[in-house]
Amino acid sequence: MSRPFKRTYTRKGEDAGADKEARPERADRPFEKFDKANIVRRGAASKAAAAEKVNTNDVAAPAQTGKIRLNKFIANSGVCSRREADELITMGLISVNGKTITELGYKVNPTDEVRHESKVLRAEKPVYILMNKPKGFLTTTADPQERNTVMHIIGAKVKERIYPVGRLDRNTTGLLLLTNDGDLADKLMHPSYNVKKIYKVELDKPLTKNDAQAILDGVKLEEGRAMVDDLAIVSEDRKTIGLEIHIGWNRVVRRIFESLEYQVVKLDRSVYAGLNKKDLSRGDWRFLTKEELILLKHFK
């Protein structure tokens, strides 16, 4: 994996014979190079570079050849989530080929007739959307207080039941993936896949060399030691930081800096799982390209 920026500091003992003093920051390095970083697997970058943008909503779903769990079939139809599907099953509201099913874990063939009460359910086409989330929007499908969510940005332009993959807090901006592909969403959110994220962080005061090294060494939070993958000072006043991280703890980037008595003034995610937002204005969204989808499908 090519590195999106050169590390400003090194972990202790990383380079044999290295000076113990922290390396001087690269204040002359423009941040937009970092912001346009695209973390991809070897060989994928050249393919993605020539990608022609297409609406992947028009790409047919792969043929299903084996049985799948009933709750997955229901979720794929756009009725509800898998957890909610389990509730419908236990309530006796789902039938398969005319027979009411209440067994969790029941599997169906793609050709079976599945009904929710009297409505026949059919699997939706898979949809994959990339959004440059603006500030002030919740990363959820609905809000009891009727505040703006990212679904208000999509509006009625997508008929399928999509939802955000992971979360960005209300005041965080940047790259967000939305889909109705539950398997892909589960994989990207699972800690074992170590999905890389890159953030641009603007602080209320300059980051000291000691604190920068402390972050690289891993600051201790409630869940344990928060390890980051890379850090770079990207402004002359040392208030703008580039941070590469893979852990997905709640508000982890803000909490890392808050633990060292810094306030995060602005937080923007520029890279997620090899995808970037270089062609997306704030508040805009688009469907993934075929090449981007292949990259995600083969993500390991």
Rank of each mutant, 00 (worst) to 15 (best):
residue 242 G to D: 03
residue 179 T to G: 05
residue 233 I to E: 03
residue 39 I to W: 02
residue 75 A to C: 10
residue 249 W to Q: 11
residue 154 I to N: 05
residue 12 K to I: 08
residue 80 C to D: 04
residue 294 I to A: 14
residue 91 M to Q: 15
residue 109 N to E: 09
residue 144 P to Q: 13
residue 288 L to K: 07
residue 135 K to Y: 11
residue 135 K to L: 04
residue 194 N to T: 05
residue 138 L to Y: 08
residue 202 E to F: 12
residue 15 D to A: 13
residue 90 T to Q: 13
residue 241 I to Y: 02
residue 281 S to P: 02
residue 123 A to I: 10
residue 297 K to G: 11
residue 207 L to K: 12
residue 59 V to L: 15
residue 59 V to F: 00
residue 26 R to T: 04
residue 216 L to F: 05
residue 263 Q to N: 11
residue 294 I to P: 00
residue 273 A to I: 06
residue 290 K to D: 08
residue 73 F to K: 07
residue 166 G to Q: 06
residue 119 K to R: 06
residue 79 V to Y: 04
residue 61 A to E: 07
residue 250 N to Y: 10
residue 270 S to V: 15
residue 291 E to A: 12
residue 111 T to G: 05
residue 241 I to S: 05
residue 93 L to A: 15
residue 249 W to M: 06
residue 267 L to K: 00
residue 128 Y to D: 01
residue 168 L to K: 07
residue 2 S to A: 06
residue 37 A to H: 00
residue 202 E to Q: 07
residue 234 V to E: 10
residue 157 K to M: 05
residue 299 F to D: 10
residue 134 P to I: 01
residue 50 A to R: 07
residue 21 E to P: 07
residue 56 T to H: 01
residue 3 R to Y: 15
residue 95 S to F: 14
residue 166 G to N: 06
residue 89 I to L: 08
residue 151 M to K: 01
residue 255 R to H: 06
residue 144 P to C: 12
residue 124 E to D: 05
residue 56 T to R: 04
residue 149 T to M: 10
residue 238 R to A: 05
residue 221 L to D: 02
residue 152 H to A: 13
residue 71 N to D: 14
residue 269 R to Y: 12
residue 297 K to T: 15
residue 119 K to N: 02
residue 94 I to V: 15
residue 36 K to Q: 04
residue 39 I to R: 01
residue 160 E to G: 03
residue 76 N to W: 01
residue 232 A to C: 07
residue 214 A to L: 08
residue 182 G to F: 15
residue 259 S to C: 01
residue 112 D to Y: 13
residue 117 E to C: 11
residue 43 G to Y: 02
